[in-house]
């Protein structure tokens, strides 16, 4: 395995690329997911609670 104490080393990854565990990618995707959820909640407020009907003209 290309890890030492849970940390993936360059030498280990070059020796065995398939041991690569994309933990950083998972972390970034979780951050993105949290942003998405926050934005959805925001849109919920905009759509259902923030506005009355706008009638132009």
């Amino acid at each position: 395995m290309g890890t030492t104490d849970g940390e993936q080393t360059a030498a280990g990854l070059l020796e065995d690329p398939k041991s690569f565990d994309p933990k950083g990618t998972l972390a970034l995707i979780l951050v993105y997911f949290c942003i998405l959820v926050t934005m959805w909640v925001y849109i919920y407020f905009v759509e259902f609670l923030g506005n009355d009907l706008i009638v132009v003209g």
Binding site: A10, L14, F20, P22, K23, G24, L28, Y32
Partner: peptide, 25 residues
């Protein structure tokens, strides 16, 4: 795609000596 591309880039960062949950960036 988001997963695959970021993971491919992360591999490059790790090979370059990047460490940590976000430090590899």
């Amino acid at each position: 795609t988001a997963f695959t591309v970021v993971a491919s880039v992360e591999y490059g960062a790790r090979v370059r000596g990047g460490t940590g949950l976000f430090g590899w960036l």
